Simulated scan of single mutants.
Amino acid sequence: MLAHHTLSILGIIMALVLGESGTEVNAVLFGSEITNPLLQMRWFLRETGHYHSFTGDVVDFLFVALFTGVRIGLGAHLLFCEIVSPKPKWFMKAGGIAMYAVSWCFMLSIWRFAWRKSIKKYHAWRSRRREEQQLKHNGHLKTH
Rank of each mutant, 00 (worst) to 15 (best):
A94V: 07
G95H: 02
G96I: 01
G96N: 01
I97V: 13
I97E: 09
I97D: 08
A98N: 05
A98W: 03
M99D: 01
A101N: 00
A101V: 01
V102Q: 01
S103G: 03
S103L: 05
S103A: 13
W104N: 02
C105S: 09
F106C: 14
F106N: 04
F106S: 10
M107F: 12
M107T: 08
S109D: 08
I110D: 06
I110S: 05
I110R: 03
I110W: 03
I110H: 07
I110L: 15
R116P: 01
K117R: 15
K117S: 14
S118F: 08
S118G: 08
S118I: 06
I119V: 15
I119F: 08
I119E: 11
K120D: 14
K121I: 10
K121Q: 04
K121F: 05
K121Y: 13
Y122M: 15
Y122W: 15
H123C: 03
H123Y: 03
A124G: 04
A124F: 02
A124I: 04
A124N: 07
A124T: 09
W125E: 07
W125D: 04
W125A: 05
W125Y: 09
R126C: 11
R126N: 06
R126M: 08
R126Q: 12
R128Y: 12
R128N: 15
R128C: 11
R128T: 15
R129A: 08
R129H: 07
R129L: 11
R130Q: 10
R130D: 14
E131G: 09
E131L: 09
E131W: 09
E131D: 15
E131Q: 12
E131R: 11
E132G: 14
E132Y: 13
E132K: 10
Q133E: 14
Q134D: 12
Q134R: 13
Q134N: 14
K136V: 05
H137P: 05
G139T: 10
G139E: 06
G139H: 10
